[in-house]
């Protein structure tokens, strides 16, 4: 029983970080209908940034989100202007391939800059744990999940309590309608992409301390984010959180009760199972297809 509670608690904590990671992707999809395959590579890039800040300046990886998030925000604006913006109205297939190419480029650049060795940031609390009457939770994981939930809460407030956030949600619900009531779609899209990257930068800071990573690690993160959106449906923050929690639990249960080696297969198996039995996702609703020409 303790093992089960332990696994569940751990799965939910991991889910918190996954949720932050997936929130950017679902936000971007909501407004632009772009599935950013480079999301995993950008996460690892964020992790490398945090790692360098920790290694060179001793900055705590979790505090480094104050730098990684703004840096990724700026990168997001640049990428939007250079490649995502011009293809905003292109078919989904074009942007999937575009961002996939981008993912490979980022992987290569990270390999050239940081090398292809496994890294991880190790602050003082790195190998310490909280022990709650037999349930052991690593401190880094607990701190990271708390920070992730705080960032998600901030994102939620931004989307629901500010005019800019409302403009993003309006554009997400109906691009043409939002344009008609005076939302500058190009600017909102650029901003959304940048905010999406800022969240993934923040998530990267956490990954730097939670998992050893190397440039090629981004594939498993692509798999994770794709299975999260398949589980939770695309475009809604709540869906991303739910999908992330489910994936976190599924991975930890597999690790605990089956084998660590097969835990990497969990996101893929979830993708197959969900798409076969419930193609619209667990929370997704089928929308009218006849008017979307």
């Amino acid at each position: 029983m303790t093992e089960f509670i332990q696994a569940t608690a751990f799965g939910l904590l991991i889910g918190g970080v996954y949720a932050l990671f997936a929130s950017g992707l679902t936000l971007i999809f909501g407004v632009m209908k772009v599935i950013n395959i480079a999301h995993g590579a950008l996460l690892i890039l964020g992790a490398f940034l945090a790692f360098t800040l920790w290694e060179q300046f001793g900055l705590d990886p979790l505090a480094s989100i104050l730098i990684t998030a703004p840096a990724m925000f700026v990168l997001g604006l640049a990428l939007y202007v250079a490649m995502i913006g011009p293809l905003r109205s292109a078919p989904l297939s074009s942007t999937v391939l575009l961002t996939f190419g981008l993912a490979l480029v980022i992987e290569a650049v990270m390999g050239l800059v940081w090398g292809n060795n496994s890294r991880s940031a190790r602050p003082s609390y790195f190998d310490q744990s909280f022990d709650l009457s037999g349930i052991v939770l690593p401190k880094a994981q607990v701190y990271a999940s708390i920070v992730a939930i705080l960032v998600l809460a901030l994102l939620w407030l931004f989307l629901n309590r500010t005019w800019t956030g409302r403009a993003i949600r309006a554009a997400s619900a109906n691009v043409q309608g939002a344009a008609l009531v005076g939302v500058n779609i190009a600017r909102v899209s650029a901003l959304t992409f940048a905010v999406g990257l800022a969240t993934v930068g923040a998530a990267g800071s956490m990954v730097s301390v939670l998992y050893p990573f190397l440039p090629g690690s981004h594939y498993i993160w692509i798999a994770r984010v794709l299975s999260i959106i398949v589980l939770g449906g695309l475009g809604s923050l709540q869906g991303a959180v739910l999908g992330a929690m489910l994936l976190g639990l599924a991975e930890v249960y597999t690790q605990t009760y089956i084998s660590t080696a097969w835990a990497t297969a969990v996101p893929y198996v979830l993708i197959f199972v969900v798409l076969f039995f419930r193609p619209q996702g667990l929370m997704g609703t089928r929308l009218r297809e006849d008017v979307a020409v």
Partner: peptide, 11 residues
């Protein structure tokens, strides 16, 4: 890395 860079960039 250069193989990734070339083909990712080309794509």
């Amino acid at each position: 890395n250069s193989r990734l860079l070339i083909f990712g960039g080309l794509l």
